[in-house]
């Protein structure tokens, strides 16, 4: 059980690392939000699950933290994406289509 928990924590940390890497590598703010918030959500959930395996007494509280992260992360990334778009954030030249800009006549 301990080893399984430890492995889960390592896997979670690996996803956190991927999130950080995506944040550095992605070309514009929207892609950074995608890479940054998604990978870190799964990373956090996996780590919390791992800690629950290592420390079964904490399961309930870890579950609550996980639930909270699962609900708030997509919300904050959506609000951020909307704010960035409304503030006219620069899009990567790779961007193929932006219906929202077209409709607003930008």
């Amino acid at each position: 059980m301990d080893v399984l928990g430890g492995l889960l924590v390592v896997a979670g940390a690996a996803f956190l690392l991927l999130g950080g890497l995506g944040l550095v590598r992605m070309p514009d703010v929207f892609n950074r939000i995608q890479a940054g918030t998604k990978a870190t959500t799964l990373g956090t959930l996996l780590s919390l699950a791992g800690f629950a395996g290592l420390q079964p007494d904490w399961t309930l509280k870890l579950f609550l933290i996980g639930l909270f992260v699962l609900f708030t992360n997509p919300l904050s990334s959506q609000v951020l994406a909307r704010a960035a778009h409304r503030a006219g954030a620069e899009e990567s030249p790779l961007t193929t289509v932006d219906v929202l800009n077209d409709e607003q006549g930008k």
């Binding site: 996803f15 991927l18 995506g22 070309p27 929207f30 890479a35 990978a39 961007t95 193929t96 289509v97």
Partner: peptide, 26 residues
């Protein structure tokens, strides 16, 4: 879907030429 999503993003982030084709659709 969450796990699939993360694997997909991980594959993109880890590949050297960063194969993205971003856009905003309705």
């Amino acid at each position: 879907e969450l796990i699939k999503s993360n694997l997909a993003v991980a594959a993109i982030v880890l590949s050297p030429n960063l194969p993205v084709n971003p856009g905003i659709v309705k």
